[in-house]
Amino acid sequence: EPLWIRPDAPSRCTWQLGRPASESPHHHTAPAKSPKILPDILKKIGDTPMVRINKIGKKFGLKCELLAKCEFFNAGGSVKDRISLRMIEDAERDGTLKPGDTIIEPTSGNTGIGLALAAAVRGYRCIIVMPEKMSSEKVDVLRALGAEIVRTPTNARFDSPESHVGVAWRLKNEIPNSHILDQYRNASNPLAHYDTTADEILQQCDGKLDMLVASVGTGGTITGIARKLKEKCPGCRIIGVDPEGSILAEPEELNQTEQTTYEVEGIGYDFIPTVLDRTVVDKWFKSNDEEAFTFARMLIAQEGLLCGGSAGSTVAVAVKAAQELQEGQRCVVILPDSVRNYMTKFLSDRWMLQKGFLKEEDLTEKKPWWWHLRVQELGLSAPLTVLPTITCGHTIEILREKGFDQAPVVDEAGVILGMVTLGNMLSSLLAGKVQPSDQVGKVIYKQFKQIRLTDTLGRLSHILEMDHFALVVHEQIQYHSTGKSSQRQMVFGVVTAIDLLNFVAAQERDQK
């Protein structure tokens, strides 16, 4: 057995438009009618409502009807409940999964919650491996369901041993009777949507819809739904939504950006999952974080739909894509998950301010006199920076000697690579993860907040409520011999709460 199987392995699926269902090699399930009293909570997966979006479509000038398939009504709160249950049931049916076995899954959280929910009911041990950027709410729900959680670096490539995929496979090879159901490759993922989600949409719309818009992560949702719609409703256009920084969209030119990270969760990847059939997507749109969270908040405030950030991405694209539809036509959007997962993220004004998705003037509360002053007023001194090749031991000596707790790590040209902190280095040394002679590049981390000289002290204040420091950066445009230009970030300084307090105190003292 291989040590790991690539999540982007070539698909062996034989589905073709027009091929009889009787030739399918898979076990198919028909939607079942729910009894009045459910035998367990797993029976509350599927049969989610279709809700008309009344205000947002009109606000953006849509002539067509805009409908939302509300997947956050599933038992675990997301569309991923469907595939989690289906993968477990299919693994039980073919004898792969037996009582007492362990389920391991690399996930952005929602599939993990679905699997942990099913594992709690069915009696399996469950280990979820997820990147650090995923919300604390997801972690809390997983723990409450009895799952064990392993976190991995957000910026690790999918084929790196440190990625959530790599760590999951390492655990599988170490733990007896453990299984990775593997949402990236498992046919049960798109089949769950082909058999149930798509049929529900067709039934709820009486077979009449002209466009379907869905955000894409593993691709199982859009693949399964689109294949069924292509068979039953061939005139329906399928629109895929991919965040900026991901590479799922086609044509490839759409993916060209210097951005590699994004805040919206559960969609987009740096590889093409095996289950994603991009041939059934008629057109791709890219979405960005700001519009995703703005539209998610709009869905909550104006439509009462308590959905997550990827739902915002989907609707932001839908109001663009559906401009081509006329009166009497219908566009369906998939709202994948609930706001429950993001209470401390985009639902929080403070978080939105820190990330730059909300401006101070958007909030009406009274601010102190210094709130709208610029960061450049602080008069920061030149920063202490270190090269990635310097040793951890030497870096600790320098920081202690100069009285700093942290320093930016830059390359020879001064471009920011990340940050090192005294606390992080000492804990890594004590844990045996690094040696004093190791290069400081081994303990770089990139989960820090950046701020510009033109940003306000109010925004800085919000950042420092949650973080010990902020890195002050400025952009530099560099022209190359080819005539092309590129933008790079340079370090201007490091600012802490002490710097802000000293500035405010000094100004008030001078005024007296």
Rank of each mutant, 00 (worst) to 15 (best):
P336I: 01
E361Q: 12
V332W: 00
E291D: 12
G418S: 13
A505V: 14
L387F: 15
Q435R: 13
E365V: 14
A413H: 03
I463L: 13
E303L: 05
G441N: 14
V319F: 14
W370E: 01
L460H: 01
S437C: 14
P336E: 04
N502C: 10
A505T: 13
K359W: 08
K442N: 15
K484G: 08
N502T: 14
D277P: 03
E252M: 13
V504N: 12
S437Y: 12
E291W: 06
P243W: 00
I272S: 07
P273N: 03
D242Q: 02
G423I: 03
D510W: 15
D349W: 02
G423W: 14
A316S: 06
V415K: 05
E258F: 13
W371Q: 09
I267V: 08
E324L: 03
K345P: 02
D282I: 04
K359P: 06
L399R: 03
D362G: 12
D411Y: 13
A301V: 14
A506H: 09
E465S: 13
F503E: 02
A318S: 14
A301K: 03
I398T: 13
D467P: 09
S313Q: 06
L422F: 12
A321M: 08
I300W: 00
T456R: 12
W369K: 08
L254N: 06
Q326R: 13
I416C: 14
D270K: 05
D438S: 14
E265W: 00
E252I: 05
I238M: 07
A321C: 13
D337L: 01
M466W: 13
P368L: 13
E258I: 15
K512Q: 13
D438W: 12
R488C: 06
I239V: 05
Y342W: 03
Q329W: 04
E244K: 09
R488K: 14
R459M: 13
G441L: 14
F469N: 12
T279V: 11
A497G: 11
G268W: 00
R459I: 13
Q406R: 03
A311Y: 04
A316V: 07
L353I: 12
E244I: 10
G245Q: 02
I267E: 06
V420G: 15
V491M: 14
N255D: 03
A382H: 13
N288K: 11
E324H: 13
C307E: 06
A506N: 10
D270Q: 04
T279Q: 14
D282A: 07
Q323C: 10
Q259L: 13
L417Q: 13
P383R: 06
G308K: 00
E244S: 09
K355V: 02
R452W: 13
G240Q: 00
F271V: 01
L378A: 12
V409N: 01
R278C: 00
W351M: 01
Y445S: 09
V491W: 13
M298V: 15
K366E: 13
G245L: 03
Q354H: 11
G309P: 03
E465C: 12
A497C: 09
T391Q: 03
R452Y: 14
S427H: 08
T364I: 14
K286A: 02
V443N: 10
V415Y: 15
H480K: 11
K402A: 05
T260D: 13
F503Q: 04
I477F: 15
S428N: 10
I416H: 08
N288A: 13
G403H: 10
N255M: 00
S461M: 15
E263H: 09
E263N: 06
Q450S: 15
L422M: 12
E377T: 07
E258C: 15
I239T: 08
H474L: 08
W371P: 09
N255I: 00
S348T: 14
E412N: 08
L373V: 15
E327H: 09
L373Y: 15
H474G: 13
F448K: 07
F503K: 03
D277R: 03
L363M: 12
D438N: 14
F346V: 03
R452Q: 03
K283N: 12
C331S: 03
R400V: 12
T314H: 09
E327Y: 03
W284K: 00
P408D: 05
L387H: 05
M343Y: 03
L384S: 14
L471F: 15
I416T: 12
I451T: 06
L347A: 07
E327N: 04
V315K: 07
A301W: 09
T279M: 13
A470F: 04
S287Q: 07
H474N: 04
F404C: 06
S338D: 08
G312M: 01
A321Q: 10
V241M: 06
Q329Y: 09
E253T: 09
D499I: 03
V386G: 07
L384I: 05
N288T: 06
D499F: 03
K366S: 12
L430Q: 05
E303H: 07
